[in-house]
Nucleic acid binder design. Sequence first.
DNA 1: GACCCGATTTGATCCATGACAAAGACTCTG
DNA 2: CAGAGTCTTTGTCATGGATCAAATCGGGTC
Lengths: 235, 235
Amino acid sequence: MTSVDPSVIADVPLFAGLSRAEHEDMLRDAKAIRVAKGRPVFAQGEAAHSFFVLVHGHLRVMKLTPDGQQVVVRFVVPGEIFGVACAIGCKAYPATATAVIDSVVLVWPSAVWPELIARWPALASRAMHAIGGRLQEAHTRVVEMSTRQVEQRVAHALLRLVQQAGRKLDKGVEIAFPITRQDVAEMTGTTLHTVSRILSAWEERGLVEGGRQRIVVREPHQLFILAESSPGASS
Amino acid sequence: MTSVDPSVIADVPLFAGLSRAEHEDMLRDAKAIRVAKGRPVFAQGEAAHSFFVLVHGHLRVMKLTPDGQQVVVRFVVPGEIFGVACAIGCKAYPATATAVIDSVVLVWPSAVWPELIARWPALASRAMHAIGGRLQEAHTRVVEMSTRQVEQRVAHALLRLVQQAGRKLDKGVEIAFPITRQDVAEMTGTTLHTVSRILSAWEERGLVEGGRQRIVVREPHQLFILAESSPGASS
DNA sequence: GACCCGATTTGATCCATGACAAAGACTCTG
DNA sequence: CAGAGTCTTTGTCATGGATCAAATCGGGTC
């Protein structure tokens, strides 16, 4: 468990440019753990003792409101660092991360973070870059939620998923992990009913292909046009 | 212009714990500039050559959508660092920051950031902490936009404003800078009409007191209850 | 194959809130 | 004080989506 093959982080952008020896050094404090589909890596409210890098699999990060509604904050794809915004400062994880397929994550104790960045200052700026990117994404999402209507939000969400986790098929691009209408609804602030109706309409127009926990985007460009068009522009 | 009184940053949390000599050192690369009410500090899309700390005043940060709608991302209060998420990595500012009252900001060239954090590593983790807090706030807002209806969102927004920029009055707490119904609408993803109606209703119940570009919260606790109550809970 | 369970589809209805319109109210200026 | 410009209030109407309800589908299990 404790000894980790350094090659697993060879293509983590966060650690790019470090030598193999340095990789080994970083992994000294890390553990690799397997997380079965559906199981949480950490839960909202739990003490934030660790930060993580996803090696294999896909995670869904979601927040739970006081009255029990869920919102999907994002999906984590391999190579990403997560649970780190809190490593410095917050006591508890602000969200829950669960595996949508069997996954492998590297775990470091939060306590080693200062030591790691002391040894590799580039790590700090890369982490900051990652967090900055997420901040922008979050702001973009706020703007979208404020100004776009449901169909456009769903279009954007799908395009983002395709970009982050698209698997090329001859028919189009498939989202590489199981995803339900409910998930999409929780990403876009609507209901699974509305998402279902929208996808059905798109399917009729040949833009996407549906399925159980499965979405294939056939015409990303058409979807993009749909996402960008101003609310009143459709005839 | 170039020489800045070190005392101005004495109570910037980002620089807390540094000696006066260190303050002077940091300010060597900085300029202080005055920004008149209504003028921009930087504009969305502009090359991000600088990062900033607000010394006096208040700024509104907003994003403009392709079709011309505005969304208020946040208000900057004195002591906060801003425009830094981009200092590392983005070329252009992702939003526009304008002064809502006459303000004073410190300006550093983005290029000195690596040098500054090399000299004071604590700066990196504090900045990261600040960005992390903003990320959480943004996520909270996404959750709110997804799950709460307008009245609750407006309640939350007001409470946040009161917390960040509240000025204690004997009648209640006043938001310390001029703010329009339109501003609140752009913070909560609704229209100024709806905000006006909501504030009128609250005013009738004695929860707030309105005015031109002015909002006084009389009963923060009542507002809080309103903000938290689940959608269907009101009789 | 029969059954079960979660995911999806589709219909019908209702309502919060956006859109449009118009009339005050306040502030500043000359 | 008149006039202009900006904010704010309030009314009416239209509608995008939420909600409620129910059928159907697809996959896995015994």
